[in-house]
Design a protein around this nucleic acid. Sequence first.
DNA 1: TAATAATAGTCAACATTAGTCAAACAAAAG
DNA 2: CTTTTGTTTGACTAATGTTGACTATTATTA
Lengths: 155, 155
Amino acid sequence: MQGQNISDIIEKYLKQILADSEQVEISRSEIANLFNVVPSQINYVMKTRFTIQNGYIVESKRGGGGYIRIEKVNLLDDVGVIDSLIGTIGESISQRDGLAIVQNLYNNEVVNRREANLILAAIDKQTLAADDRMQENSFRARILIGILNHLRYES
Amino acid sequence: MQGQNISDIIEKYLKQILADSEQVEISRSEIANLFNVVPSQINYVMKTRFTIQNGYIVESKRGGGGYIRIEKVNLLDDVGVIDSLIGTIGESISQRDGLAIVQNLYNNEVVNRREANLILAAIDKQTLAADDRMQENSFRARILIGILNHLRYES
DNA sequence: TAATAATAGTCAACATTAGTCAAACAAAAG
DNA sequence: CTTTTGTTTGACTAATGTTGACTATTATTA
């Protein structure tokens, strides 16, 4: 029996709720209070246990009536393809290689033609119009990775 | 589940009315009274939830018989609005305003849900992960404009 | 026309949330 | 026992919402 630290207990508590409903909406301070931890511990639990790789999406809002919402999503079958594509992107990618990635997605029917063109518009050299090539390639990489992470699940 | 703060509730109330008619005309003090808030809170709701990015135009008049009128605008009816959207983006846009624009595109059926989420993934704060806020907002602006220009020719 | 009443707008202070980051501490691995 | 990895904590930051004093505009009345 593992899971004695408080982060594990909070994780278990939240996942128990998520067993019944698709999402939970909590107040950070309330939960922190409930388990007698500092509020920022809740952020730690989110970052380490409710990641997209595990099939969770976390959204939040600050200010009055603020919240943290955890949503459980269905991971798709081609997660393997996505992982390997992310691996090849790394921290920087040229427009040419970016095009290849998008074409790969299209060929694997992860996206349709319209969606592929949308992505290409987003990572286009002219669109990014960065100060230098390194910055351009770096942002292109981040955008592609963000999109790929999104494609892991159905929304 | 959501909508704990009073601004959200007022927003919902007004949008419910706007679901049936193209516009609403309210008295600021009446609405403030109805929801037990100070009148200026209504201005706050207008400024944060009924912007042109959200697809609304707000007009008002002071003095006796004064009013605030909210009008829903339709992207498809008016090609110029895409231009004005690009204009409001300018060189920099926050995640919040970016979300408003994408939601607007979706509401006006310029993009479908999947495409909207794809765009949101591309302009997400975490995706961009820029060194500073200015850089983040700048790239978000370029990406959105690139996509909007693409959509203009596509459809 | 001038004064007054009846509206709405602006702005800054304050309130209420959540996020970040790094240091201290603890547990696990080597 | 030492090193590495994971956890806990709290000070500081950021975002969002609420309030009220003061201002601006328009209509009505004297």
